[in-house]
Amino acid sequence: MTHLTDQELEVARLIIDAVYLEDLKVEEIDPEAPLFGTGWGLDSIDALEIALAISRKYGFQLRSDDVEIVHIFASLRALTEHIQKNRTD
């Protein structure tokens, strides 16, 4: 299991709060696991909640016509990197 960075931990907590993953333990998180489908099991409604939480905390809006969007939600690690590049807070 790869260790989470502080930033990844912060984003993981944001996701857990946003989409109510009450039985996911932070220490069990694999930062490389896919967020959708087999990994975290998230879906498109969760993506809306996560996007909202991100815009509130980090001050920027996600867009699906961003050519990178598939990669952005590929894993916790990818999402965290995207947030660090785009945050305006």
Partner: peptide, 12 residues
Amino acid sequence: GKRPFFPEDVRR
């Protein structure tokens, strides 16, 4: 022709 998803997509 688009199918906007995130709020910012809808706005655009």
